[in-house]
Design a protein around this nucleic acid. Structure first.
Lengths: 337, 337
DNA sequence: TGATTTTGCACAAACGTTTGTTCAAACGTA
DNA sequence: TACGTTTGAACAAACGTTTGTGCAAAATCA
């Protein structure tokens, strides 16, 4: 009964026109090729009647155009990236393209694998928050002429366009805020150490500490995850001299800290002050509303997609590596000493 | 310099073998077709040297196999669905398939559009949390033989497989918990009214209320969003007789409630008790840890994918419509009256 | 009326694979 | 030696589109 999917040949036969006519009508090129109203009608009618759905594979094979862009992020389950995915997806759809989303799970091998898959599907552009220093594969794509934009994470010394936050500045702001409130023993719990945003945040933290004449800064941790925050906080609390403030480099890490502190019956900010990177709708409603450094996520996505489509249109873009300004959202988790 | 992407013809030429030999070697069918070790070597070598990436479009066009399954959800920015996306993506990759993720934004038209896009890409299976009553399009795909599994949301009277939570039971449990704590004026803030999970939750709430002899239950709201929770809570607080407890049908709604309550300087659970659907890592650390009904999300995804691949393998499955049990996670947001 | 232009469309060659068929050479057997 | 069988691989026909080219018929012009 389903009789296989109908194709334009079927339509052509039923409508009594040629294949090319069907193709042109269905692609909106009727005018350009002066197809009569009558033929157009007939083609559209039969297409509808047969429930025709074009076969992208065939179309793409011939035309070379896939109408697809790829988004590759390290973790869909991280709310920060989920937000990005949602935003990018919407922006891309608005432009008539399809997004295929890949999740590399912070794993370079998976990332490369996904990248191959995506190439196999002839993507026309790539938005990526790359794992660590997996720059070779990405650079190669870029050099082959594929429009690429890095987002959040990027490569400092390559000419690949990127849109991210000024993470250095953000970390400086965060650290200064703690310093200004009289804190001196400030520990920093980081995420993936090799990632550029993490490195810059660390640098900002260090510089601010040193500028304040504080040399025993402490950097620990290795993952943007709740578990990592929990584990490192526990360890910190076992130290002889406990820190008076914690700078968590992601809100997942911060959650881990909160969990550990609660287990030890310590309260924020009375016993320990806490400040984190990345806002989240829930942060306002925590037991202690969490002061954080926020990134302009939507803005980042918008600009990234704008760049990408500029490149798709072969337009030159003047400034293709941008860092947007972060902001501090002051809440209640930092105590004045 | 890039000289266009190489194809198997190029490889065949360079390696001095035929096109079919290249294809068979690269597809792991060398043994089956008794290709000599030497030829295999040569083919693989040249493929690597030329940086060959297969063209899925061509392969799929010929073979009819796309190795792709589609996931269509109402909102990637909702943490519940983001989790699902993450999980499904991983499960599917483990089976050597690619997921393409679509976000319908709770919009039937977009959903249909995405569905067409996906059909265009010859997906071999579909996992979907469908919008409202858009069952026609999905039923049609199902009848055409496409393996389809609904997830979270589904259609009660169709024979399309689904995996979801026993939402009715969950709502009964939640409402009973409130009743047992002496609450009588319990308002329920719902999400998308037409969605099956929402309807069943409402039914559970109603039934539990009526069973308790309470007839003035109150059902308000129309979206699974923070804004909706906020707005409805505000309205509730303007009523003459305020409710003593709120049952929010998603944690996004709950956040909205919390926001409204805070603005009015009311505290949970002292002034108003609150219970919500769906857990979230943050809920434990809110000012008042939030009691909730949790769904076994990972389990749902796993089973859904298992079903899907059973169907892909043409295997029959006995019981293809399952509801998993929800659980109450007791925290601190319900006061004993 | 005949020549020229325009209109409307059909034809057929790709695109890069997969896969059924065919076939020479090498080998084994009687 | 003559024959059948196995081995290893080439050939060529699809898959469903897009698109450059070509060419009647209709319309316009001289």
């Amino acid at each position: 009964m389903p009789a296989q999917k109908p194709n334009i040949v079927d339509i052509a036969r039923k409508a009594g026109v040629s294949i090319s006519t069907v193709s042109r009508v269905l692609n909106g090129k009727a005018e350009q090729f002066r197809i009569s109203e009558k033929s157009q009608q007939k083609v559209r009618e039969t297409a509808k009647k047969l429930n025709y759905v074009p076969n992208q594979f065939a179309a793409n094979l011939k035309s070379g155009k896939s109408n697809t862009i790829a988004l590759l992020i390290p973790s869909l389950s991280n709310p920060f990236f989920a937000d990005i995915a949602s935003e990018i997806n919407a922006e891309v759809r608005n432009r008539g393209y399809l997004t295929i989303i890949g999740d590399s799970d912070e794993n370079k091998d998976i990332e490369n694998d996904e990248l191959l898959q995506m190439q196999s599907r002839n993507i026309e552009g790539l938005v990526i928050a790359p794992c660590d220093q997996n720059w070779k594969a990405i650079k190669k794509l870029h050099d082959q002429g594929l429009p690429v934009v890095c987002i959040d994470r990027y490569f400092e010394n390559l000419d690949i366009p990127y849109v991210s936050t000024d993470n250095y500045e953000g970390a400086v702001m965060g650290t200064k805020h703690l310093l200004e409130n009289g804190h001196q023993r400030i520990a920093c719990i980081q995420g993936v150490p090799e990632s550029v945003p993490n490195k810059l945040r660390i640098k900002g933290y260090k510089d601010a500490m040193i500028a304040a004449g504080l040399k025993d800064y402490q950097i620990i941790g290795d993952e943007f995850s709740v578990q990592n925050g929990y584990k490192e906080m526990k360890l910190l609390l076992q130290q002889h001299e406990k820190p008076t403030a914690i700078f968590a480099l992601s809100n997942t890490i911060a959650i881990g800290c909160i969990k550990a502190l609660r287990e030890e019956n310590l309260s924020i900010p009375e016993d320990v002050s806490l400040i984190t990177f990345d806002d989240h709708p829930f942060l306002d409603y925590l037991a202690t509303p969490l002061t954080c450094i926020t990134q302009p996520t939507r803005e980042i996505c918008r600009i990234a997609i704008k760049y990408l489509f500029f490149m798709l249109g072969n337009k030159e873009i003047k400034q293709s590596q941008v860092l947007l300004k972060p902001e501090v959202k002051y809440r209640k988790s930092v105590k004045r000493l």
